[in-house]
Design a protein around this nucleic acid. Structure first.
Length: 499
DNA sequence: CTAGGGTTAG
């Protein structure tokens, strides 16, 4: 009782007076520490329990595994897995779901999957565990595949499955699956469930369906802070900046206090609008509201980003320098700011400094470096960056490739651009083709443009929006016959997207 | 006693 209420000291005192604590007492203590975020200490107690010769039971395993998840302690988790088998608990559904969760949260998805696949009964919880872990770690497509596999087996998603799946839909822009889940919510009469409703708002804003998100928000009787934050950051992310700001004001008029998440959403809107003065006021507000004047890391990242977007590199640096702990996202927001503003020297210096501070560059870091090269026309630097990047084991993706192609296209080196496209393991998409086509126009090379256009329309992923862009780009130099192709393609794509 | 909602760089 004391442990659950956060009175760990009292709980531990009582525990210490027990002459020979049984496994239930040990487990209650471990549970208390885990639930109060003291996972390290929980694992210490677990080890102590085992030194006393007490065998763990189901509850010990569930909390022990949860502690391993929180700490990303894969080694300890694997030890516990071995002990689960020693204790003969490998058929226990709760323990098994905890094992799947532990492996997935430690990033060991192959092991998580292996445990899951060998379960005697794959129940709704173990499925949801897998879906949730995938959705939280950027494997959103995998999450949706799981959802559909589960449904195929005749298992209906419950509200928790729906919540996790909606996140995956939002992250991948999968509106059609998202709408089906919305139907499930209506059928199951879960519209009054704030988790379900807030997840719908998240999904719809991420998919760009702002009207739908707004409709759901409006129908809510008393939206909580999470509902407000979802709609505010959703609008800001989609560039509906004034609406985002108006909503944050409205939220406060309703008597709700903005928190860090609200602030981050508002800062994003301000950054989009490049509204420097507004950003300054928010910064001052943040500064005064922090008792020890230490700004939250994510808020600081949003501030750095906002100042960079407003062109105020000096203020961005000030916020950055004042942070005691700097993670790689904070570093990257500054690096990206330098790249966006074309400060190549500052960018390369900061890149070296970041590495000197022991932080590894990521795919996003390299994208900024390549962007700045593209901006400054530094072809050779771009090549060597690509090499360094591969040396870090980071595969270039379509955005990196696009930088290189942009760089080559800009200087009219189309032949080289095509050579690069052929050498790299990624298939060019219509995004790449649009880049090249833009340069064809600048260099007035209509034959090549036609060829590039044909390559682009053969891309199966091509979206109707592309044809609009393409139409604008090509109208200046493309023949009438070619215009017909463009329009017929546009028609085909538009009708197929209705299916 | 297992799974769940909003926030950061592109």
């Amino acid at each position: 009782m004391y442990a659950k209420q956060g009175l760990l000291f009292d709980a531990h005192e009582i525990f210490n007076e027990l002459p020979s604590p049984c496994v239930a007492s040990w487990s209650a203590l471990i549970a208390g520490y885990v639930e109060n975020g003291q996972t390290r200490e929980a694992l210490n107690i677990l080890a102590k329990m085992q030194r006393h010769g007490v065998s763990p039971n189901v509850v010990t395993f569930i909390y022990g595994l949860k502690a391993c998840s929180n700490l990303q302690a894969l080694d300890k988790g694997q030890e516990l897995h071995a002990e689960v088998i020693v204790e003969g608990l490998e058929d226990h559904p709760f323990v098994n779901s905890s094992l799947v969760d532990m492996y997935a949260r430690c990033g060991a998805f192959a092991e998580a999957r292996e445990v899951f696949d060998e379960l005697p009964h794959q129940d709704i919880v173990s499925w949801t565990t897998l879906i949730s872990a995938y959705a939280d770690n950027g494997h959103d497509k995998q999450a949706i595949i799981c959802l559909e596999a589960m449904q195929k087996l005749g298992i209906s998603p419950n509200v928790i499955t729906i919540v996790c799946s909606l996140k995956a839909c939002g992250n991948t822009g999968n509106l059609s699956v998202g709408k089906k889940l919305h139907m499930d919510i209506i059928v199951e009469q879960l519209e009054g469930n704030p988790f379900a409703t807030n997840s719908l708002i998240y999904m719809y804003t991420k998919c760009g369906s702002l009207d739908e998100a707004w409709h759901i928000f409006e129908e809510m009787h008393s939206p909580d802070i999470i509902s407000w934050n979802s709609i505010i950051s959703g609008f800001a992310e989609q560039g509906e900046n004034e609406r985002a700001l108006a909503l944050s004001k409205q939220m406060q008029e309703q008597g709700l206090l903005p928190d860090n998440t609200t602030l981050v959403g508002v800062l994003k809107a301000v950054a989009n609008m490049e509204a420097f003065e507004h950003g300054r006021r928010l910064h001052a507000q943040v500064f005064h509201s922090c008792e020890d004047q230490s700004i939250d890391l994510i808020v600081a990242t949003a501030l750095v980003d906002m100042y960079c977007k407003c062109g105020s590199i000096v203020y961005a640096q000030q916020v950055f320098n004042k942070m005691e702990t700097k993670d790689y996202v904070l570093w990257t927001s500054l690096l990206t700011g330098y790249a966006q503003q074309g400060y190549s020297d500052l960018l390369f210096q900061a890149y070296d400094s970041m590495k000197a501070h022991g932080l590894q560059p990521t795919a996003v870091t390299f994208l900024s470096l390549l962007n700045v090269c593209s901006h400054a026309g530094l072809i050779n630097s771009a090549y060597s960056i690509l090499e360094v990047m591969c040396g870090y084991g980071i595969e270039p993706d379509i955005k990196h490739l696009n930088c290189i192609v942009d760089l080559l296209g800009r200087s009219g080196q189309f032949f080289l651009a095509f050579a690069v496209l052929e050498r790299l393991p990624i298939k060019p998409t219509y995004i790449i083709w649009s880049t090249i086509l833009g340069h064809c126009r600048n260099h007035s090379i209509s034959e090549l443009a036609q060829y590039v256009f044909e390559c682009a329309v053969s891309d199966e992923e091509v979206e109707s929006a592309f044809f609009v862009v393409m139409s604008n780009l090509s109208s200046e130099f493309v023949s009438e016959e070619y215009e017909d192709v463009l329009h017929s393609c546009y028609g085909t794509s538009a009708s197929s997207s209705l299916l």
